[in-house]
Design a protein around this nucleic acid. Sequence first.
DNA 1: ACGATGATGAAC
DNA 2: TTCATCATCGTA
Length: 188
Amino acid sequence: MRRALKNDFFERPTLAVARDLLGKYLVRRKGGKTEAFLITEVEAYDGWHDRASHAHRGETERNAPMFRSAGRWYIYLCYGMHWMLNVVTGPSGYPAAVLIRGVEGVNGPARVTKRLSINRTQNDKPAVLRSGLWVEDRGFIVSSRLIGRSPRIGVDYAGEWARKKYRFFLKNHELSLRGVTHRVTTKQ
DNA sequence: ACGATGATGAAC
DNA sequence: TTCATCATCGTA
């Protein structure tokens, strides 16, 4: 089973999308080569009131993709050198997105974009095969007991929002890191 | 523990 | 126009 996720997957509440992205595959096609990576760690950024979100101070040129329809990429430069990859979620007009913080064998949001050669050229583009970057369901089921939650990384300035457990990760991430076949999932 | 490195947004 | 800040990482 190999099915590219459609907009209806991303149009759901942001926390649900974040949780369900674990165990899906981030797929990159570039220069005739296609690579797929198991998604192992994500963070949700949910609405205007979320003080950790770029959308907290309203719509700007940078965060405009977050306010648009779900299933598009929101990519921006952080600390002057790192690209951050997010996928827009929720209804159109509601600013929300999920940050891809880790994939199998690649730990950390800046390393993910570096490994997959992602930069602003994909920003605001739809997550479909045609754009060269999309997400696939490959039939794995990730049960709740294999998922960990924690506060988000690097958002200590966000007050009570910094403490919300909006980060989701696969508990056996370390196994994946060492290149060992992961056992977190069960074939459908 | 800290410097790299530049876009962003808010203040002036 | 200036300035502080920043959804991080590599080196020490």
